[in-house]
Design a protein around this nucleic acid. Structure first.
Length: 509
RNA sequence: GCCGCGUUGGUCAAGGGGUUAAGACGCCUCCCUUUCACGGAGGAAUCACGGGUUCGAUUCCCGUACGUGGUACCA
């Protein structure tokens, strides 16, 4: 093989939020590059000016930063092959398209959008619902293959709007080796004369991807499986441009599918099924449509990444939890699955839970502070860390720390009285009144101390612990949930504990 | 329609001519815990179908079915 430095790229178009599948493509690119001590470049494919969405590029940068998958070269960071935004490379592409026209591998086409539409309408039949501009149809269209030379020259001279199309050969078998699928075969009859250069002078994806991959010395091209059908166009372009020897190795990654079948996972499915599809919150600046993201839902980036990598890849062992460093070491494109994977949000939450439990309390507290701030609550970092430590094993996402620990930040307003009242009596009331009184005499307000004195008094008054613990819990938390009661009391502190006992006693009467 | 790609429990998946066909998520039962979780022990559940090849196919080949992607001056 060769000894070229590995260079890969992620080439999104800035049209909106970054999809799960996009992040996974980034991840595979990144892991492969880092494993081979290569470069990972971010290239923005903004050749469709009508679809450009302001803010989308910044959003992509921020997603990558959050995930810890920072590109070595990008529009923001620059690099030896700048610019990395295709709109800024516009002037570059035309010469290559013209070169292809010269060599007979491409031609000018003057058909207007209306004429194309008309052709499709005319040729459409039940057997052929989408007629292509192919080697037979092009004979009847207005292009430099059918028009007299003089007319072509005149049209060009008059700046008549035109595109440049690839001249797909008839009936050629194209074979290439895909890193995940092995040998893949196509017949050129099945692919149409794709537009290479649009009327506005911008290249289409097809031209831009090969020109830029060549110019940027990309060695391995990973992209979603949806690109497989247009691979023959790209293969031919590499060949016709005379760059065959430098063509990257292709890897078409399996898609991430809807959990309930039928198609690629889309952000619509997330809304419909109640889970995020985008990495981070995204608001479309034009429609103001809001789509929630994994980050804001309370996912940890390392868990998000781990969950994504397992969708289509495994190392052959039973291990499921991997750090980024470990993934860089162990990842192999050969072990990537060929088939698409249905997204399972339950499993995604399980991954996050694994990371939540392992994470230190201080970090969790820091991540949880914004959630508290949103509720107008200010709390001491050390206190929040204690709470996080107490409730984390029952949370799937950061935000759930609130669901399982809200009572650490606010006194219960109402109680699960149905679980207390039926068995409530004067003896129990007396117990709590007495115990509350003696709290001040404890040598330390800690869980073991509290439990010891609680037990002692219960024994003295001849009441079973179980009969007492539940009411106590409900006084403190309002319901049947939460960490061990004495841990809660110890965390709350003596004043708050006494206050809650008093308040509970009132409510249970 | 045509073309490409795919198909191991509900989901993610290991395996790959002879196996009791791993493991994880989820689900169910029990234990732990007089809360909820964590944890532990069990359980139900899988090789799409039909032909070959073979002494033997989940595994190799061919069909079929199904799924999925593409079929734009979108990426």
């Amino acid at each position: 093989m060769d000894h070229k430095k590995v260079r890969v790229r992620f080439a999104p178009s800035p049209t909106g939020g970054l999809h799960l599948g996009g992040v996974r493509t980034v991840l595979f690119n990144y892991l492969f590059a880092k494993q081979h001590k290569g470069d990972f470049v971010l290239r923005i494919e903004d050749t469709d000016q009508t679809r450009y969405v302001p803010g989308a590029e910044e959003y992509i940068n921020e997603c990558l930063r959050w995930c810890g998958l920072t590109p070595d070269e990008s529009p923001a960071a620059g690099g030896p092959y700048a610019p990395y935004r295709q709109s800024e490379r516009k002037a570059l592409y035309r010469q290559y398209a013209e070169q292809l026209v010269q060599s007979g591998h491409a031609y000018y086409a003057f058909d207007t959008p209306e004429e194309l539409e008309g052709m499709r309408e005319r040729l459409k039949t039940p057997e052929n619902p989408s007629p292509q501009y192919n080697h037979v149809v092009r004979q009847k269209m207005r292009n430099s293959l059918t028009l007299p030379d003089a007319e072509v020259q005149e049209l060009l001279a008059k700046n008549t709007p035109h595109v440049i199309r690839i001249n797909m050969p008839a009936n050629e078998e194209l074979i290439f080796t895909d890193m995940v699928r092995g040998e893949v075969t196509f017949n050129t009859n099945q692919v149409d004369d794709k537009v290479l250069l649009k009327a506005d002078g911008m290249p289409t994806y097809h031209l831009a991807v090969v020109v830029d991959d060549y110019l940027m010395k990309i060695t391995h091209a990973f992209r979603g499986e949806e690109w497989l059908p247009s691979a023959p166009v790209h293969l031919l372009l590499w060949k016709y441009l005379g760059w065959e020897a430098d063509m990257p190795q292709w890897a078409h990654l399996p898609l991430i599918l809807k959990p309930d079948g039928n198609g690629k996972l889309s952000k619509r499915d997330g809304d419909r099924l109640g889970f995020p599809v985008y990495a981070m919150n995204w608001t479309d600046p034009r429609s103001n449509e809001f789509t929630k993201g994994f980050r804001e839902l309370g996912f940890l980036p390392e868990a998000f990444i781990n969950m994504l990598v397992m969708l289509g890849w495994n190392d052959g062992t039973e291990q499921e939890i991997f750090s980024l460093e470990e993934l860089i070491r162990k990842f192999s494109i050969e072990r990537v699955h060929k088939a698409g994977a249905k997204f399972d949000f339950e499993k995604a939450k399980w991954f996050n839970h694994q990371y939540l439990v392992r994470k230190d309390n201080e970090s969790l507290a820091a991540l949880f502070q914004p959630v508290l701030a949103e509720k107008g609550i200010t709390a001491d970092p050390a206190y929040v860390a204690t709470v996080a430590g107490l409730v984390k094993e029952r949370c799937h996402v950061i935000n759930e720390i609130w669901d399982h620990g809200f009572f650490f930040f606010q006194t219960p307003l109402s109680y699960d009285e149905a679980s207390v009242k039926p068995k409530w009596n004067a003896d129990k009331e007396a117990f709590f009144t007495a115990w509350s009184e003696q709290l001040a005499s404890l040598s330390s307000f800690t869980a073991p101390e509290l439990e010891a004195s609680f037990k002692a008094l219960a024994a003295e008054k001849n009441i079973k612990m179980g009969e007492l613990q539940l009411p106590f819990r409900i006084m403190l938390t309002s319901g049947k949930f939460g960490p061990p009661v004495f841990d809660i009391a110890a965390t709350l502190g003596i004043e708050e504990t006494k206050a809650r006992i008093a308040k509970g006693l009132e409510a249970f009467k």
